[in-house]
Amino acid sequence: MGDTVNDRQILRVGVVGAGHISGAYLGTFLRLENLRVTAIADMDPARAAAAAKEVPGARALTPDELYAAEDVDLVLNLTIPAAHAEVAHAAISAGKHVYGEKPLAATAAEARALLEAADRAGVRVGCAPDTVLGTGVQTARTVLDSGEIGTPVSATAFMLSPGHEGWHPAPEFYYQRGGGPLLDMGPYYLTALVTLLGPVRRVVGMSATPRATRIIGSGPRAGTEFPVEVATHVTGVLEHEGGALSTLIMSFDAWAGLVPRTHIEVHGTGGSLSLPDPNGFDGEVQLFRAEAKEWEPVPERGGYPGASRGFGVADLARALADGGPHRADGQLAYHVLDVMESLLAAAGSGESVTVASTCERPAAVPAGARPEEQ
Score class of each variant (00 low, 15 high):
residue 11 L to K: 06
residue 11 L to S: 09
residue 21 I to P: 14
residue 22 S to E: 13
residue 33 E to M: 10
residue 33 E to D: 15
residue 35 L to Q: 03
residue 37 V to C: 13
residue 46 A to Q: 13
residue 57 G to A: 07
residue 58 A to C: 12
residue 58 A to Y: 10
residue 61 L to A: 09
residue 69 A to E: 06
residue 74 L to F: 03
residue 79 T to H: 05
residue 82 A to M: 09
residue 84 H to K: 14
residue 85 A to V: 03
residue 89 H to R: 12
residue 91 A to W: 00
residue 107 T to F: 10
residue 125 V to S: 05
residue 125 V to L: 07
residue 131 T to H: 10
residue 136 G to S: 09
residue 138 Q to T: 11
residue 148 E to A: 14
residue 151 T to D: 12
residue 152 P to G: 02
residue 152 P to I: 02
residue 156 T to N: 03
residue 167 W to T: 14
residue 171 P to A: 03
residue 171 P to L: 07
residue 176 Q to P: 04
residue 178 G to Q: 12
residue 183 L to A: 06
residue 184 D to P: 02
residue 185 M to W: 04
residue 186 G to Y: 07
residue 192 A to G: 01
residue 203 V to W: 00
residue 204 V to R: 10
residue 209 T to F: 01
residue 219 G to V: 01
residue 220 P to S: 07
residue 223 G to R: 00
residue 227 P to S: 00
residue 228 V to Q: 02
residue 229 E to D: 14
residue 231 A to Q: 11
residue 233 H to P: 04
residue 242 G to N: 08
residue 249 I to L: 13
residue 251 S to C: 04
residue 255 W to H: 13
residue 266 V to H: 05
residue 268 G to L: 00
residue 271 G to A: 00
residue 279 N to E: 13
residue 279 N to M: 12
residue 281 F to Y: 15
residue 285 V to Y: 09
residue 288 F to P: 01
residue 292 A to L: 10
residue 297 P to W: 11
residue 312 G to P: 05
residue 313 V to E: 04
residue 325 P to R: 14
residue 326 H to K: 08
residue 330 G to M: 07
residue 330 G to D: 05
residue 336 V to Y: 07
residue 337 L to T: 10
residue 342 S to C: 06
residue 343 L to P: 03
residue 345 A to F: 10
residue 354 T to E: 15
residue 364 A to M: 07
